[in-house]
């Protein structure tokens, strides 16, 4: 099993993602600088980590989405490789067009950092299979622009196709339909605002995030 974590200038959860994957799955993790034009051979999981790529200047994720490595990430998505974008990584995936919708300024206008309860809306994806039988999981959020937006038609389609994967029990940021995480129509690209990379050991308050990495790699 092999995973890659992409490092953009301003990523700040890249090390956390590596630790989380290593400790929860034992997989080998390669750190890939955003200027690379190739990904490690035979990679089974690509993670776009949280942080403030390019300082979140202009728009969150906008400039990172144009990084050289993103062409490879898109190609990997086309080949069906599992891709997870967490927080800023979710924003990058939306900006890159790999996921529908966008993340806009939180309804409360403030950055919000707190533990959140999540409904696992769809436990049949390759990322959430390990949550079968779990109605609720706990992770933390930390974002200022985590308010998921998509037009009504897109939201209907996402709901209808089971692409809404996680939903906040209590909406921390005004996200449309309490959406915390979505997958693409093919089911191999996941974006979520809560941090599984901060919830991989009981000491951190929750180990629920480990299951996500385990599922993603088990499905490869």
């Amino acid at each position: 099993m092999k995973a890659a974590v992409v490092v953009f200038p301003g990523s700040n959860c890249d090390r956390d993602c590596r630790t989380a994957i290593e400790r929860s799955t034992g997989a080998e993790v390669a750190m890939v600088w955003h200027k690379e034009t190739t990904l490690p051979e035979g990679v089974d999981l690509i993670v776009l980590p949280g942080g403030f790529s390019y300082g979140d200047y202009l728009r969150c994720g906008a400039m990172a989405a144009l990084s050289p490595v993103m062409a490879e990430v898109k190609a990997a998505a086309g080949r069906g490789v599992a891709i997870v974008g967490i927080c800023n990584g979710f924003q990058i995936l939306c900006e890159a067009g790999l996921l529908p919708g966008a993340l806009i300024r939180n309804e409360g206008l403030k950055y919000v950092c707190k533990p959140v309860a999540l409904e696992v809306t769809n436990a049949q994806t390759r990322f959430t299979a390990g949550y079968a039988g779990r109605r609720q999981v706990t992770m933390t959020v930390g974002n200022g622009e985590g308010n998921y937006y998509a037009d009504e038609a897109t939201l209907e389609r996402l709901e209808g196709e089971g692409q809404v994967v996680f939903r906040y029990v209590q909406n921390p940021n005004g996200s449309a339909r309490r959406i915390a995480g979505v997958v693409n129509d093919r089911g191999n690209v996941l974006g979520l605002m809560p941090h599984p990379d901060r919830a991989f050991e009981p000491e951190l308050g929750s180990a629920d995030g480990a299951i996500l990495f385990q599922s993603a790699l088990a499905s490869a």
Partner: peptide, 9 residues
């Protein structure tokens, strides 16, 4: 179209 605006929003 490419960078300065996100036409989704």
């Amino acid at each position: 179209e490419k960078l300065l605006a996100n036409t989704v929003i």
